[in-house]
Amino acid sequence: MELLDARIERILRAAGRAPSVHNTQPWQVRVHGNRVVVRADPSRQLRHSDPQGREMLISCGAFVLNARLAARRESLLPVVTVLPDPDDHLLVAEIGLRPGPGPDIDELELAVAITRRVTTRSPFDDQPLDADVLQAIQIAAHDEGAVLRLIQPSEPARDQVMSLVRRAEALAAEDPAARGEEKAWTAVAPDRPDGIPQEMLGPWTFDDRSPVRRFLASAGNAQFEQRSTMAVLLTAGDTPRDWIAAGQALERLLLVATTYFVRASFATTVLENPTTRHDLRQALSLDAPPQMLMRLGYGTTPRRTLRRTVEDSVAPDA
């Protein structure tokens, strides 16, 4: 049991490296023997910009995917039940851990990539991703039940997408509640284990063709690339189950991208506003709900945001 406890601790540490909106890390876990229970933590929800908890559950889905891969690295088989209680939407998943064979090469590669994956808000190299890389990350999304719809630099609708991103950010900047929420989670102290420190917010850009989020506390400006790959992640439906699936798909594609030295940057504001989210779907003629908009490219490796300790994320038994 002592060895298994050590394994679970390593699994939870790796799971906590998952990306989350504003690095809120909105998850809480309980451990019952060989079973890990993952709950969404509403105290870390962005109540104004994410009132339904869509981004919160996407973040928790990414946590679950990391836990699955980290379990395989420990030669354990994760048996995952998503939303096991239909009356408790905060109970994201139960993960049973059983003895299993050692990880295969692909599982081990993705598990190792968990510690290397990083979000960046800096310019990329001015080139689209290679065709084999695009295929690999699209397959990764598909493996988790989602679709990654690419938006190439030459696509006419890309300008419409950029216009909607800027419109959503302008509306948020005029909203005192949105500004207050952003302030609470950005430009935080460098040693704070959540949120985004000032120096990691990235520079501004005044180029409307660059899908870079403009944080209110961003400092300086930079010339961003014009030919990076943009993509939008889609799910079949728009329910809590779909949002958790989106989080697992997002993290799997990001880890696959990491194995190719590809970095990601997210534009979330356009999907937080119901009007611009609808308009984005119309502009791209999407037949499924968009869950995440991102740019993908090659670039330098930035610093990583800090994470809470395992002890802080584990809730005491009731």
Rank of each mutant, 00 (worst) to 15 (best):
V79E: 15
L69W: 12
E55R: 05
A187C: 07
R213N: 08
A157G: 07
T239S: 15
I8T: 06
L12F: 02
A246N: 01
F266W: 15
A217K: 14
D87P: 04
L284N: 02
R252M: 00
R303S: 11
V82S: 12
N221C: 12
V37N: 06
P197L: 02
T259C: 12
P153S: 11
E107F: 00
L110N: 06
L77N: 11
E94V: 10
A136H: 05
A219F: 07
R241S: 12
R308C: 04
Q152F: 13
I58D: 10
V147H: 09
L46N: 06
D88P: 08
S122C: 09
L271V: 06
R149T: 10
Q135T: 13
P274D: 00
A231M: 05
T119L: 11
L65S: 10
D143F: 06
A170L: 14
E174P: 05
N273G: 05
V256K: 05
L83N: 12
E225V: 10
E74R: 08
G180L: 02
G16K: 01
I114K: 03
P302V: 06
Y298W: 10
L57G: 09
V310T: 14
T309V: 04
V92R: 01
A67S: 12
R307M: 08
T119M: 10
R213Q: 14
V314G: 10
R263H: 15
A111K: 07
P240A: 06
R307Q: 09
L293S: 03
P211Q: 05
R13S: 09
M200Q: 14
W204D: 14
A157Q: 13
P42M: 02
V256S: 04
Q25T: 03
S20L: 07
T275L: 12
M294K: 00
H32I: 09
D126G: 07
G102S: 11
T258H: 05
V161C: 05
R54C: 08
E107Q: 12
G53V: 12
T186Q: 09
W204K: 14
Q248D: 00
R35W: 00
G145R: 02
L255S: 03
Q291R: 03
G96P: 02
L271H: 09
M294C: 08
C60H: 11
L164W: 08
V314I: 15
G102C: 05
F224V: 03
F215I: 07
T268Y: 08
L69D: 02
M56S: 12
A217H: 12
A40D: 01
A67L: 14
A217M: 11
P99G: 04
A245H: 04
T309G: 13
D106T: 13
A217R: 14
Q282F: 00
P316C: 01
A217T: 04
P123G: 01
A18I: 04
H89K: 09
A249I: 07
R213D: 07
G100F: 02
G247R: 07
L90I: 06
Q152T: 15
R73T: 13
R98H: 13
R209Y: 04
Q282W: 00
A140Q: 01
